[in-house]
Design a binder for these strands. Structure first.
Length: 279
DNA sequence: CGTAGACCCTGCGCGC
DNA sequence: TGCGCGCAGGGTCTAC
């Protein structure tokens, strides 16, 4: 479900509501996520503590707490993290609920983590060392980092025979790009997703990096891509699905050249591309 | 080391 | 109506 733009939008929409707010209680209804939730740690380091700020790294959402801990939330494929009125009726698969202390001018609210497939993750890490933890240690750079350039990719992709689409989705290379935006970026850059990563030269890496940055920024502006599950922190759908050029458009005409969009499978995931524009 | 595949889990739409 | 199949925004682990 959520790639970089969606997690970024969730972070931005939750931030004004949660920053400075105290978590009054934590309720874990289903601890069996990708890894078991450490309920005792949540009770100790989240319940009764204040949220000092929100941030994003890769597809992880980071909630900094005044207990010198960082609450790490990953939404997997089907996860949602939404601010909800406390009186809203419970919904299936709401595994973790963070009750928020009342604050002036607000009704009773809570932060609900819902994840039908349970591929997501909720973890607690020490504030001082979170970036050295296993989830983060091996991550590549942020794709929107202004320092990032084509040279970096040329170096890393040397002699790599992995298809460029899988290479782009490898978080050790660059984070945040998943199945939707890899396909969209390759279409914008005019590159066949089957091309070996090591065959992409400097000029094409420049185009591909620019394309990835363009589509990620545009999606953030559009509030993310809502296909089935995705909602922002306030429960609103994104609009970027309207602008997708290839993802999910098998058999439909390419808006650039009119050829039919093709689907193939790479690394067990669907790839969508236009055989006319992408070579 | 680099690469490909299975696996975790639930829900949905489709064809029969 | 009911059942089985394939598919879904991700990440990790194993075998070769």
């Amino acid at each position: 479900m959520p790639e970089l733009p969606e997690v970024e939008v969730i972070c931005r929409t939750l931030s004004p509501h949660l920053t400075g707010r105290r978590v009054s209680a934590v309720e874990v209804r289903q601890p069996a996520l990708r890894r078991p939730v450490d309920v005792a740690a949540l009770q100790r380091q989240v319940a009764g503590h204040r949220i000092t700020g929100l941030a994003r790294r890769a597809k992880y959402l980071l909630l900094h707490l005044d207990s010198a801990a960082v609450l790490v939330v990953h939404l997997g494929m089907s996860g949602r993290l939404t601010l909800t009125p406390r009186r809203a009726p419970p919904v299936l698969h709401e595994h973790v609920v963070f009750q928020l202390a009342q604050s002036r001018g607000r009704g009773a609210e809570e932060l609900r983590y819902r994840d039908p497939r349970r591929f997501g993750l909720i973890d607690l890490l020490p504030a001082a060392t979170w970036s050295q933890a296993a989830h983060f240690r091996h991550l590549g750079p942020e794709p929107l980092d202004p320092e990032l350039d084509a040279d970096y990719f040329v170096q890393l992709s040397r002699r790599r025979r992995t298809p460029i689409k899988n290479f782009l989705m490898d978080a050790r290379v660059v984070v945040g790009i998943g199945n939707i935006y890899a396909a969209e970026a390759l279409h914008i850059a005019g590159i066949d997703p089957r091309t070996a990563a090591g065959k992409i030269g400097h000029r094409r890496w420049e185009r591909l990096l620019a394309a990835a940055q363009q589509v990620l920024r545009q999606s953030i502006k559009n509030g993310g891509t809502s296909l089935v599950d995705y909602r922002d922190g306030e429960g609103q759908r994104g609009l970027h699905q309207i602008q997708l050029a290839v993802y999910g458009r098998t058999g439909e005409p390419c808006r650039s050249c009119g050829r039919r969009i093709r689907r193939l499978v790479q690394g067990g995931r669907s790839t969508f591309f236009c055989g006319g524009c992408q070579r």
